[in-house]
Nucleic acid binder design. Structure first.
Length: 698
DNA sequence: CGCACTAGACTTTTT
DNA sequence: GTCTAGTGCG
């Protein structure tokens, strides 16, 4: 392997293959390169088998990216390599071994948060426990992961213990695992079945861990178990970028690792290949405020550029005007939309920026937001698929037994559940006993669908067949307004095309589908974002971790937003500061930081105070570009506002792209306009240059 | 059983 | 300002 493109420390990290190694990798210091090169190096230069390497990440996206990069380096397939998230690693192990734990089958279902919330809620409702189910669910997760609960009153505690037990029982009885269980059951498996542990300890000669600073106690324990024999464990992390402590991530694991793996080789990667010196100066100034961190000083590779800009604006409207102006200038400078990111602390401030880009017809994509796979229509499809593959999947059964409506209500279901419990069968089997017309029809339908699956030429076609046979689309159209229904139908179609893209290894359709379904429960929308469309990114800080952009706007740097209102302790503030640091270090060339004295929040104009983090940056490190004299010119290239009487409902307009449309509703300059069917109803700003009035009403 | 209205929230959340 | 979950009525 040619390692000449690496710097000395990077090369050391790649070639120190034996024993425990920790790499503290600053932002933009090439840690993914090191990880992938190291794996390639093991395979090509040390003749390690692909199967004997385990690499764990936190996101599917990171795992997929690593697989792709390794494939290029070794010029070989990596599809079946053990490069995966903690959760899918565990799921893969459990798929083969879970029966050893007793009470589970390999057809276990993985619950997402929504599912598991619902279970908690149902338990509480049944017992009339008048407490917050979300909180209880949260505590269950905390208890599972590290046992420490907040101080609870005696009654609440009693309720909680009850709910916890019932929840666990319900999961076990129904062959369900929540996300936490995937890890915990794997550990249980390893601890109670030394033969299994032994096998995997031998198998995984080399273990690599990405984003080590984000591991929680359970994940640490899992790594410890797996690496106990060979101790060839390589962890990469950056304590500066630890921003998930609220999810249980333990920055202390870094210290623990160094303590427990005595001869750990610690390697620092401090050379930043991403950002200009000017941007790094700000990043370093911010992170310097935090005590107790592993000393690291990011140095740039002598890239210089423009000084970052910070500006506090009169109000959030002016702030937005500035952002638009700058984006326009950046485009003239040759930047693409996709080079630009607008990053905020909380989703609830995203709206304003989204509206802004919409108004000026700037293409954008919002990162995160509701996951594709958690949309009701997709979950319904998955439930159908699951039930087709495994009739005994009660969880899937319950989800779709009455979707579309089949007149199978709670009373019928409760009767069916009773039979199931007494006879110890599945709900599907219990139908034979109850002999209810509607249920019989449903059973017949599912059996028919299973039949279809076996005669299928093309696996994705099963989606069409499901929709057709169940009348799913008709129900959507009946239940929602047209716009929403079309949206949902398109989502189902997109899901079908996802199935078509999925890589199958078997030729048996049932096997392939089964595998796909396992993968699906751990997937999320961002993982397989396909088209690299040219669009501005809108995102929270948390969701751009690991990404980079030519230009970054960090917006709404105001107390109560950033740092967030709920942040109190010094430790919390330190984490907020790291969040800021993560944002700054996303920028390659240009960085803009903005705040406003008043901001439109929760339906009213609210007074804001500049974030304390701004004061921590030496004023010499940034420019405040706008001078009083050219302020006016700067701010108001905005379309002339509030000539709102210009339009009213019933007016006919013409839009450059959508053609003729009728104004349905106006609210100042914003309006709902109905266009031809293929465009539907749009929310538009009527002052936009693309719009002309054709005919006024009256 | 299904819908319409109202109260309440409105930090981040890789799986 | 806007979304959601929950209730209560037809």
């Amino acid at each position: 392997m040619d390692l000449s493109s690496l710097n000395d420390n990077q090369r050391l990290a790649v070639t120190t293959t034996e024993g425990p190694v920790m790499v503290m990798a600053g932002a933009g210091s090439g840690k993914t390169r090191v990880l992938t090169m190291r794996i390639a190096h093991l395979i090509k230069d040390h003749q390690v088998k692909k199967d004997n390497i385990l690499a764990v990440t936190f996101t599917n996206k990171a795992a997929n990216e690593m697989k792709e990069r390794i494939a290029k380096l070794i010029d070989d397939e990596t599809d079946r390599m053990w490069v995966s998230t903690f959760h899918s690693f565990c799921s893969r192990i459990l798929r083969g071994e879970i029966t050893r734990l007793g009470g589970y089958t390999r057809f276990f279902t993985i619950l997402d948060d929504e599912d598991s919330n619902k279970i908690v809620k149902d338990i509480m409702k049944e017992r009339n426990i008048d407490e917050n189910p979300k909180k209880f669910r949260d505590w269950i997760s905390r208890k599972k992961n590290y046992g420490n609960l907040p101080k609870l009153g005696p009654l609440t505690l009693e309720y909680f213990d009850y709910v916890y037990d019932e929840y666990e029982k319900h999961l076990k009885d129904n062959n369900l695992l929540d996300f936490d269980d995937l890890l915990l059951k794997t550990i249980e498996l390893f601890e109670n079945h030394p033969i299994v542990l032994d096998h995997y300890q031998d198998k995984f000669e080399y273990i690599l861990v990405d984003e080590f600073q984000d591991t929680n106690e359970v994940q640490y324990k899992l790594l410890k178990l797996l690496s106990a024999k060979n101790k060839n464990i390589f962890v990469v992390g950056d304590d500066f970028q630890s921003i998930y402590s609220f999810r249980g991530a333990k920055i202390e694991n870094i210290k623990k690792f160094l303590d427990e793996y005595k001869n750990t080789k610690l390697i620092l990667l401090e050379k930043n290949y991403r950002s200009t010196t000017e941007i790094l100066e700000i990043a370093n100034a911010v992170i310097k405020q935090n005590p107790n961190q592993i000393e690291k000083n990011l140095t740039s590779n002598d890239k210089t550029g423009k000084k970052p800009i910070y500006k506090c604006f009169e109000n959030s409207k002016v702030e937005k005007g500035f952002i638009i102006d700058e984006i326009k200038k950046l485009l003239l400078d040759g930047y693409k939309y996709s080079d630009i990111a607008i990053i905020y602390r909380a989703n609830y401030v995203s709206r304003g920026y989204e509206d802004l880009l919409l108004k000026y017809q700037i293409p954008y994509k919002i990162y995160g937001n509701i996951s594709f796979y958690s949309r009701a229509e997709i979950k319904d499809m998955i439930a159908y698929l699951k039930l087709i593959v495994n009739h005994d999947d009660d969880f899937a059964f319950l989800r779709i037994v009455n979707v579309p409506r089949r007149k199978i209500g709670p009373t019928t279901i409760s009767k069916l559940t009773d039979i199931k419990n007494i006879q110890e069968t599945s709900l599907f089997e219990a139908i034979d006993v109850l002999d209810n017309d509607n249920l019989n029809k449903f059973k017949k339908l599912i059996l028919e669908l299973s039949d279809e699956l076996n005669n299928l030429k093309n696996l994705p076609d099963i989606i069409d067949i499901i929709c057709e046979k169940t009348g799913y689309f008709d129900e959507l159209k009946r239940l929602n307004d047209e716009e929403v229904a079309i949206d949902k139908i398109n989502n189902v179609k997109e899901f079908k095309s996802y199935i078509a893209r999925y890589k199958y290894d078997g030729d048996d359709p049932l096997d392939s589908l089964e595998l796909l379904l396992y993968d699906l429960s751990l997937l999320n929308e961002n993982d397989d974002k396909l088209e690299e469309e040219d669009a501005v990114t809108l995102s929270t800080y948390h969701q751009v971790k690991g990404l980079e952009f030519g230009v970054v706007f960090l917006v709404a740097l105001e107390e109560s937003i950033f740092p967030s209102l709920n942040v109190v302790t010094d430790k919390d503030i330190e984490e907020e500061r790291r969040v800021f640091y993560v944002g700054i270090t996303r920028a390659k060339e240009r960085l803009f930081i903005t705040s406003a004295k008043t901001r439109f929040l929760f339906g009213k104009e609210t007074d804001m105070i500049e974030s304390r983090f701004i004061k921590e940056i030496d004023k010499g490190f940034y420019n405040t570009l706008i001078k009083k004299s050219d302020k006016k010119k700067k701010v108001l290239k905005e379309p002339k506002s509030k000539s709102d009487s210009k339009f009213s409902a019933g007016d006919i307009i013409q839009h450059d792209k959508f053609g003729f449309g009728v104004v349905i509703k106006t609210d100042g300059e914003n309006a709902k306009v109905a266009f031809k069917q293929e465009f539907g109803i749009k929310d538009l700003n009527l002052n936009h240059p693309a719009i002309k009035v054709i005919k006024k009403k009256n």
